[in-house]
């Protein structure tokens, strides 16, 4: 669902065409301002990597446990689910329905896998990080005090 700025519509006739034009233009403008090809937040990145680690076994509870175990941090269901939803909306993850089990009271699992776009996004993030690492002068990380 696209959110449309309401103010655009208050007075004009033939609103729909001009509305969409304005709206796309607006989005482009926003994108160009951000100058970002792949958007990936820190937590999103962690989630994606974990989905990768778990490979064919990545669903809500397992991802949560994996992150909690590996990174020693608490992850709430809410934060995780909304991150998964965002990533799926962006096209970095896709999901399919799995089996329903006893301990889930008959509710099916939903498994996630990384898409090709998701892979590129991860790689992009990694290379940018590495480039940044490389760009740090030696002295900045190992300051030596002489004299």
């Amino acid at each position: 669902m696209r959110k449309i700025p309401v103010a655009k519509y208050t007075s004009n006739k033939g609103f729909s065409d001009s509305g969409i034009i304005i709206n796309t233009a607006f989005r482009k403008l926003l994108c160009s301002v951000r100058m970002k090809k792949y958007q990936l937040g820190e937590f999103e990145e962690v989630v994606m990597l974990t989905v990768g680690i778990l490979y064919n076994d990545a669903y809500g509870v397992s991802i949560k446990k994996e992150i909690e175990q590996r990174l020693a941090r608490k992850v709430s269901v809410g934060a995780l689910q909304s991150a998964l939803k965002r990533l799926e909306d962006k096209g970095y993850l896709k999901s399919h329905e799995g089996e329903a089990t006893q301990e889930r009271a008959g509710r099916p699992r939903r498994y996630f896998v990384i898409t090709a776009l998701g892979k590129r996004a991860l790689e992009h993030t990694k290379t940018t990080r590495e480039n940044l690492w490389k760009a740090i002068p030696e002295i900045a990380l190992n300051p030596r005090f002489t004299g």
């Binding site: 509870v61 949560k64 689910q81 939803k85 301990e103 889930r104 009271a105 509710r107 699992r109």
Partner: peptide, 16 residues
Amino acid sequence: ELRTYIEGDLIELYNE
């Protein structure tokens, strides 16, 4: 569209 899956996760965690 998310309801059953998240519900499943919640119940699984609850039981654990």
